[in-house]
Amino acid sequence: MTIGVGFIGAGPVTQAIHLPAVAGLSDRLHVARVMDVDEGTAAAVAARAGAAHGTSVEELLADPAVEIVAVCSPHAFHAEQAEAACAAGKKVVLVEKPLATTMDEARRIAKAAQDTGVPVVVGAMHTYDPAWLAAERHWGDLPATARRVRSRIVLPPNARFETLATQLHAEPVFPVRGGDPADPAVRAASIRGAILGLAIHNLPLVRRFLPRVERVDVARPLTPFGYVLTFQGDGRTAELIGYLHLGWREEWSFEVWGDEGELRLDFTPSYVRAGSATAELRTAAGLLAFGLDPNNGYTGEWRHLAALAAGAEPPRYAVADLLDDLAYALDLAERAADRLLQGTAA
């Protein structure tokens, strides 16, 4: 028998990323129920997987066929729904990034997980990528000796990848931000949203090599969506560039330079099932290369969720680490926003 998965929220990430990943692991997982506030979307998405559907979170959590809960709803609902999934005694809870919108909310999730013994996993897919995990086993003291970190995420709009990955039932409608783009408050809100919406994908990686943010030197929002950030901590410097543009060129890279080593990873776009990242690790001992695994980080994440639900593996990341990742992202977002509010973007 395979393990049943219930999705809270049936938007593009569920349709184009998670459902194909679960389908590729049909020897151990199946979709049991799909919930969405839009009944038509819930019904259409569930029909693709032969699953039950509904518009009620409570109904999904009461379904004994649902053993893993994936919280893929808007960020503001993550804490309440993750807490409820833990209280319902499910075997594992996956919460999409970010874990919560505030540290108080995140601590509520952590307490629910501790009180119930239900493991909570955050959908930071790159921390489950086979190339990242292989490099981690070999990089030695690079986290202690790192001096510079760079993350570049340059992509076409998500919609272009979504249409390659699946036929969306309904296009999501996002609120359009108004206001004068020269207004510091508008710019601050823009960069805060870009950090928590795009940069957050790589921030757990950045934190491994620059654990503490002391100051933000450059914070600049980009049009139509993106950011340029540089910040420092403990004598180390990070440069983060994120940009969604109207062409097709893409780059999703992560680089680290240390006293005696270098690391570079090139990730595939999230919505394209094109396998793992590739990684090159240079140390005094020479060059090591990893990657070209047929599975990407999402598949690795779902493999781990299945193993957790079956009791075959312990959680890969402690809840305390997930809280620290969120605290790091929120701190960086607030420091960048404050810099723009002070009128000192660069």
Rank of each mutant, 00 (worst) to 15 (best):
D234R: 11
V176N: 12
P221Y: 01
A170H: 13
I191W: 03
P156W: 05
R148I: 09
P143G: 11
T223V: 13
I200Y: 03
N158P: 13
I153K: 05
T166S: 06
R147M: 09
R150M: 15
V228H: 15
R177S: 10
P156V: 04
P204F: 06
E171D: 07
Q232C: 08
P175F: 03
R150Q: 14
R147I: 09
S151P: 02
Q167N: 13
A219L: 05
D141A: 12
V173F: 12
L205E: 05
V154S: 13
L210I: 11
A199R: 05
T230W: 02
L222M: 06
V206N: 00
L168Y: 04
N202S: 14
D217G: 12
A219F: 03
G197C: 07
V218F: 09
P204C: 08
E136F: 09
R187N: 01
V228E: 15
G235W: 05
D234K: 10
E171A: 15
L198H: 12
A188K: 06
H138K: 14
A134H: 02
R148F: 13
P143K: 06
A165W: 02
F225G: 02
Y227N: 13
R137Y: 07
F231V: 00
G226H: 03
P184D: 06
A189P: 10
G140M: 03
G197A: 04
R215W: 05
V218M: 09
L210W: 07
G235M: 12
E239A: 15
I195E: 00
H169T: 13
L198R: 11
E162W: 14
P157V: 14
P175M: 04
P204G: 10
V206H: 00
R152P: 03
R137C: 08
R236E: 04
Y227H: 15
G179S: 07
N202E: 13
F231R: 04
G235P: 01
V228P: 05
R137I: 08
T237F: 14
N158S: 15
F161K: 10
V213A: 11
L205C: 12
S190D: 13
V213Y: 05
S190H: 14
T230P: 09
L240H: 05
A194L: 02
A194R: 00
V206K: 00
I191E: 01
V186E: 01
T145M: 09
R187W: 04
D217L: 14
N202V: 10
E171P: 08
N158K: 14
V218A: 07
L168T: 01
L196G: 04
E162R: 12
P184F: 04
E162N: 12
A199L: 14
A159L: 15
T237L: 15
I191R: 00
A182V: 12
